[in-house]
C-alpha cells in the first residue's frame, strides 16, 4: 500500500507511532545522560553512613549541611576563579574591541601583515606554550599570583575576540562615523559612543565564551598556581580529597554542585551567545 492511498486515520496512526518511537529513544538517552547528575545530587545530600549503608535509598534525612562543608573548602577557590576569569575577560574585551576597531576602520602600513601574524596564533595549541609560558611567569616572579592567570588569559583570549570584533566592526556602515566626524567627534569618541554600543551583542558573545573557557581551564592553573589559597576552582575540586579526607563523599559532591553555580548563571542568559561565538570562531579559524 503506498502512502498516497493511505487513509487519513492510518497515516495519523503511523505518524504517531513514529513519533512515539522517537520520543522513547530520546527519553531513554535523556535518562542515561542524567544518571551522573542525579547521582551527584543524591550523594550530595547523604552522609557516609547513608551512602555505605543504604546505597540505593534516597537521602534521609537530607544533609543540607554538606553544602556548607563543601563551601568551606572550595568557596575561596570559586571566588578566585571569578576574580581571575572576570578580570581577564574584562581586559580582553577592552583591548580587543579597541584593536578590532582599529583593524576594521583604520588604514596603516603593514596592517594586513600584523593581522595575519595575530591570526597565525590560532594555529598554536596551548600545549606547545604551556611550559615556556610557565618559565616566563616564574622569571617574572608572578608564580602563585592572580597575575599568572589573568595576564596569559587576557592575552590568549584576544586572538579569538579580535577576530569576531574586527569582522563585526567592518559591517558597521561608514556613514555613522562620517556623521560623528562632521559633528566633531574624535576617533576615540567615535569608538566609544558609536562602535561599542552597536557591538554589545558581539561583546557579550566574546565575554560568555571567554568566561566559560577560563572557568573550565585546568592544566594552566595546575602548573602556574601551587598555593591552595590562590587556586582556581577547577583544580581545587580535584585536590579536595586531601583537604577533608577521602571519606567525606557528601560534602565533596556538594562542592561539585556549588562549583557549577557560576556556569548555571552564565548559561541561563548566555547559551545562545556561547554557541554562536564558538561556531563563528571555529569556522573562521
Amino acid at each position: 500500500m503506498s502512502a498516497v492511498t493511505m487513509s487519513p486515520t492510518m497515516r495519523r496512526l503511523r505518524l504517531s507511532l513514529g513519533q512515539t518511537v522517537i520520543f522513547i529513544i530520546l527519553l531513554s538517552l535523556l535518562v542515561l545522560t542524567f544518571v551522573p547528575i542525579v547521582y551527584l545530587a543524591v550523594l550530595a545530600l547523604k552522609d557516609n553512613g547513608q551512602i555505605y549503608g543504604r546505597f540505593w535509598s534516597m537521602p534521609n534525612p537530607y544533609r543540607w549541611e554538606n553544602f556548607a562543608l563543601g563551601w568551606a573548602v572550595i568557596g575561596r577557590s570559586i571566588v578566585n576563579s571569578i576574580i581571575t576569569s572576570g578580570s581577564a575577560c574584562a581586559t580582553t574585551l577592552l583591548l580587543s574591541s579597541l584593536s578590532g576597531y582599529v583593524f576594521a576602520r583604520h588604514r596603516f602600513p603593514a596592517k594586513e601583515i600584523i593581522y595575519t601574524g595575530i591570526l597565525a596564533l590560532l594555529m598554536i595549541p596551548p600545549i606547545l606554550t604551556l611550559i615556556p609560558a610557565y618559565v616566563l611567569i616564574l622569571n617574572m616572579g608572578l608564580e602563585n599570583t592572580y597575575w599568572a592567570l589573568i595576564l596569559p588569559w587576557t592575552s590568549g583570549g584576544q586572538v579569538f575576540a579580535l577576530l569576531l570584533c574586527r569582522s563585526f566592526f567592518a559591517t558597521l556602515p561608514e556613514e555613522f562615523f562620517d556623521a560623528a566626524r562632521i559633528d566633531g567627534a574624535t576617533e576615540l569618541q567615535a569608538f566609544w559612543r558609536i562602535a561599542v554600543p552597536l557591538s554589545i551583542p558581539i561583546l557579550v558573545t566574546v565575554a560568555v565564551v571567554r568566561l566559560v573557557t577560563t572557568y573550565n581551564q585546568f592544566m594552566w592553573p595546575l602548573v602556574a598556581i601551587s598555593s591552595p589559597k590562590r587556586q582556581v576552582v577547577a583544580v581545587a575540586l580535584t585536590q579536595f580529597t586531601s583537604e577533608i579526607g577521602v571519606t567525606d563523599i557528601g560534602p565533596r559532591m556538594a562542592a561539585y554542585i556549588t562549583a557549577s553555580i557560576p556556569l548555571v548563571i552564565l548559561f541561563s542568559f548566555g547559551m545562545r551567545q556561547y554557541v554562536r561565538g564558538l561556531t563563528a570562531g571555529g569556522l573562521k579559524a
Binding site: L98, S99, F103, R107, K111, I114, I124, L151, S155
Partner: peptide
C-alpha cells in the same frame, strides 16, 4: 598612522609576551 599603532600596541605587547615568545621559546 602612529595613532593606530598606539591603539593596537597593548594587544601586540600582550601577544608578543604571552603567546609569541612562549611559542618560539618552546
Amino acid at each position: 598612522a602612529r595613532f593606530s599603532y598606539l591603539l593596537i600596541l597593548p594587544t601586540l605587547l600582550f601577544l608578543l609576551t604571552f603567546n609569541y615568545y612562549p611559542a618560539f621559546s618552546g
